[in-house]
Amino acid sequence: MAERTFSRGMIFGIVIIILMFGGLYYMLSAPTTLNGGLIEPSNTPYKDTINVTLYANALGWDYGVKGDHTNPTFNITVGTRIVFTVIEADTAPHTLTIADSPSESSTHLTLVTTSQLTQITGHSVTVSYVFDKVGTWTYWCEIHPTTMVGAINVLASANTSANANCHVSPDSAQHHSQNNNNLNSFFEFLLDISGAIIA
């Protein structure tokens, strides 16, 4: 037998070392972004917070009043954080999914999953998201995408006033519309004036 300096035991040890570091590398490269990196979770500072309570019903999202299935449109200024409280209203599974496009998109972010919102009527889940991009966003339920869909209009901030950039128009029945923009700017103007007077 010739003198062997590199035997199978050493190969075994080297395989162990390779597997140790390979496994560690694999674990450390685990995806930590939502849905494989389609939209990053927003850690940006927010200027204002709106609390929104949505009843999840297969016939449509209810805002405030349970049972009207309005799919409300929300008009907010950029940098607003919406705290969604999603409440199960029927016994069907629902999600709350958002995308920064005027309609449902595959590049989306599911804020509330079917497993978070159980099918027990009355169960609620609270999540929040900072809308930091101007444009029309869509929110919908992935299981009922045709009935449960609504729009979030994220408007450019007219000024930096902290208390003047929050407008919700829950009673608007038609989504994907910019109808209330004039009214909103008027409200903004009024609020600015009032703020100035108070100051």
């Binding site: 685990a30 995806p31 972004t33 939502l34 849905n35 494989g36 979770p41 599911t110 497993s115």
Partner: peptide, 8 residues
């Protein structure tokens, strides 16, 4: 948690 398919 275990039936959650959201990678994050």
């Amino acid at each position: 948690l275990s039936i959650n398919l959201n990678p994050y």
